[in-house]
Computed example of a mutant assay.
Amino acid sequence: MARSETARASAREQARRMQAEQERKHKMQSLMLRLGVVVVAVALVAGLAFFVLTRDRDGGSFTQGPAPAAANEQGGFVLTSSTEIAEGDNLGEIDSENLPATQGEDGLPPGVGPREEGEPPHVVIYTDAGCPGCAAFESAYHGMLSQWLDAGQITLEYRSVSFVRPPYSARSANAFACMAEHGPEHYMSYLGAVTAERLNTTELSNDELAARAQNYGVDISDCLSDGEYRAFASYVNALAGEHGVGGTPTIFVNDEQVPGNEFIEQAAPMIEAAIAEYESEAGGAEEGAEGEAEGADAEGEDADAETPEGDDAEEEPAAEDSE
């Protein structure tokens, strides 16, 4: 009797273990199935995001397209005042998968280098409208940058990349290029205002980006909806990565990079130091020119002072001859 009870207990325990093992396998299969669904879903979403990011109005990809006339070869817009963009390189059609073979100096991106004698400091900013740090920088520095520009103390170049929030950053870069093409006098103000909004909102729709431009009396709605400069935005982004720019904001003052973790604290002192050097050089040149002018005046005065003596010397022999 005792053996029979023991056998039944053993059978029950074995059945319990088999059931537990089956439940464990079932849970594992369910987990793997769910993971598989998640992986597939992520792949689909990533593929869709890539498609949305790279497609253009003709269903192609954002790799080939026009560049704004004012853009330079690095995809930057150079400001000579807060309302003036310098003449660009007329890039025409660009291809973000066929980048120009340009090289910078000493490991710097092309177009970044020491200040040329007699030229104001050149500030290059790699910026991203989806970047909170860029928003903080524009909030803190936009007014000062405008003042330095309008005083002729610096030139300023923005290169818009799409590192932080790729779809939104790329759409915003397109909007900035649209403004550079259709309302260049408002480019800087528009870029600064849209970028600073990142402090208060996640992102702006194309309609909202168009509305911000309309505040300046500029209609870029078609340019935005058509993604006219999305290939150009891809081109600038690819160039930045090609030349070692890995974060935003990345700021250069002539050939010196502002420390990335101290850009709020260090940008102004570095720019002001560069301005002081430039103005000191310009002041020295002016003093030299004044000194040369004074020397020329002094020589002229000496010549005038000698003239009467010379005349007397010529007249005296004539008097003797008449005698």
Rank of each mutant, 00 (worst) to 15 (best):
I125Q: 10
E181A: 15
L48H: 10
Y168A: 11
A46Y: 12
P66D: 05
M18Y: 06
P114D: 07
I275R: 09
T127P: 10
A129Y: 15
G300Y: 01
G133E: 13
C178K: 00
V161L: 05
A273Y: 04
N200F: 06
G192V: 00
G183A: 08
A175M: 02
T127W: 08
G60M: 04
I264A: 14
R212Q: 12
L31R: 14
E256T: 14
G107A: 11
M1H: 13
V37G: 01
I275P: 02
P66K: 04
D106M: 04
P167W: 08
M28C: 06
V236D: 00
G107L: 05
P308Y: 13
G76K: 03
G130W: 10
Y278V: 06
E242W: 02
G291N: 06
T54V: 05
E281V: 02
E97P: 00
A177W: 09
Y126E: 07
Y126S: 09
D321F: 14
M1V: 09
Q64T: 09
R159E: 10
I85T: 07
S225W: 05
R198K: 15
A46E: 10
L191Y: 03
L44E: 01
G288I: 02
E292M: 00
R16Y: 07
P259Q: 12
E265N: 08
S30R: 14
M18F: 11
G288T: 06
A240H: 09
Y141C: 00
P249F: 06
Q153M: 05
Q147E: 14
G130H: 10
Q214R: 14
G76L: 12
N72G: 07
M188I: 05
V164Q: 15
G183C: 12
T127E: 15
G59A: 08
H122I: 11
A273G: 08
R57P: 00
P100A: 10
L48G: 11
T202P: 00
A211P: 02
R24S: 14
M18L: 13
V124G: 00
E117I: 07
D219G: 02
R159M: 12
D297N: 08
A298V: 13
E316S: 11
E97H: 10
N72S: 08
L191E: 03
Q64S: 03
A273C: 03
S280C: 05
G227M: 07
Q266V: 11
S189W: 00
G104T: 02
E262R: 15
G88A: 07
T54F: 13
G291E: 11
G60C: 02
E84V: 12
S234Q: 07
G192A: 14
F77L: 14
E309V: 13
R115V: 04
F51T: 05
T6I: 09
G288L: 12
A9K: 13
P68D: 06
D222V: 06
L48M: 13
E5D: 09
S205G: 15
D56N: 13
S10N: 03
T127S: 15
P132H: 11
E323F: 08
N261I: 10
T248I: 14
H243R: 01
R16G: 11
L53S: 10
L199Q: 15
H142C: 02
A303S: 10
Y229Q: 03
T248S: 15
D89V: 03
